[in-house]
Amino acid sequence: MINLIYINTQEWLRLKFLQVVFFLAFAYVCLSYLLATLSFTDQLRIKFNLGFTGLELATVLVAAFISTHALDRDIERKTFQVILARPIARWHLLIGYLGSIFFLNAILVFFMTLVMVIFFGLQVDLLNVIVVSYSLLLKSVVVGAFGLMLSTLARPMFGLVMVFSYWAMAYSVPDIRYFIQKIQSSSLERASIVFDYIFPQFYLFNWKSYRDVEAGFIVNDVVWASLHCFGWVFLLMFLASVFIRKKDIV
């Protein structure tokens, strides 16, 4: 599995699309720096809020694109067949993809956090910035696991659209619930409870703001966020491995 993760990471790093995403992510951080100079009072707030948003968009884009395209690409190019001819289980290949998503995003998160810290100065607690970056990395892995599960069932473009919808829904459940309460429909209210079970609760650790960086974090919250994400990754990868077990590799 380590071999697969290593080879996949190397392969995706060479992809032009990914290099463009990496470049745009850094450009976004630089832009947030320039935008912040327009303000006298809220410079740090603008820098961090925009910087973290850029980081989340980039990591989700990387996870969504790789997870939905990796399997289809390898089947098309017959790389999947050459690897599967070895005495390894199919789910090992999925772990290979997920591992490469994790490492690519870890590289992206590391360098962007470094750029933010260097550009924006060390006027905030570095540990808090790291916690926010770590939470964004975890979320991207959950999104990647969902994309991989979908890639065993659906075509890449459909998967890509679904992954972005899934990511948006993971933040939007409280908003949906609020509107449902306004409508006062009991059946819709029950549906909103179901949403909490079928989507991860990213809104509970939406820490990508300067306010949270300033306020700091409770260890229990960080542990809960980690376990929540690990749980979702495990569940989604389990489903993906069940779906791929009997999938025809045509």
């Binding site: 790389t79 067949q81 050459v82």
Partner: peptide
């Protein structure tokens, strides 16, 4: 041992 028709290698 297996070799498919015209595979892509890394």
């Amino acid at each position: 041992g297996f070799l498919p028709e015209r595979p892509y290698f890394q």
